[in-house]
């Protein structure tokens, strides 16, 4: 077990504090070109994904990547999250996992 390098699960609100860090970001794909995609964060904010390794095949996806600036993530990999994903519940989870229970998930 190695918990030295956690990858925080973040929403739009946390991106500005995570510049240069590797994060997990779940969002809804709104449009995509070659190597670049626009996603809506769970709270509805817009985020740009750079360097997409392959096309997003479903509406929802989880991107693992490094935060470039408060609205941009440089992708390392992504997992398609299907067509049925509850963003409201996930947004509530993000509030808990980055708020009162942050110490369970990352430092």
């Amino acid at each position: 077990m190695n918990a030295d390098e956690p990858t925080p699960r973040v929403g739009f609100a946390q991106l500005k504090n995570m510049i240069g860090r590797r994060v997990l970001f779940v969002g809804r794909v709104e449009s995509q070109d070659v190597g670049r995609a626009h996603m809506a964060a769970p709270d509805g904010s817009k985020v740009v994904i750079e360097g997409a390794s392959s096309a997003f095949e479903t509406q929802f996806a989880e991107v693992q990547g490094v935060v470039v600036d408060p609205t941009t993530i440089r992708e390392e990999s992504h997992v398609d999250f299907g067509e049925n994903f509850d963003m409201n519940t996930y947004n509530e989870l993000l509030r808990l996992a980055n708020g009162p229970h942050q110490q369970m998930f990352y430092q």
Binding site: R9, F60, E62, F81, G82, N84, F85, D86, T89, Y90, L93, L96, A97, H101, M104, F105
Partner: peptide, 18 residues
């Protein structure tokens, strides 16, 4: 895992259990 709401659920259950 086929339904990715399970990821949300698991994290929430972890918090609940804690």
């Amino acid at each position: 895992v086929h339904d990715f709401n399970e990821v949300t659920y698991h994290c929430l259950q972890a918090i609940f259990q804690h």
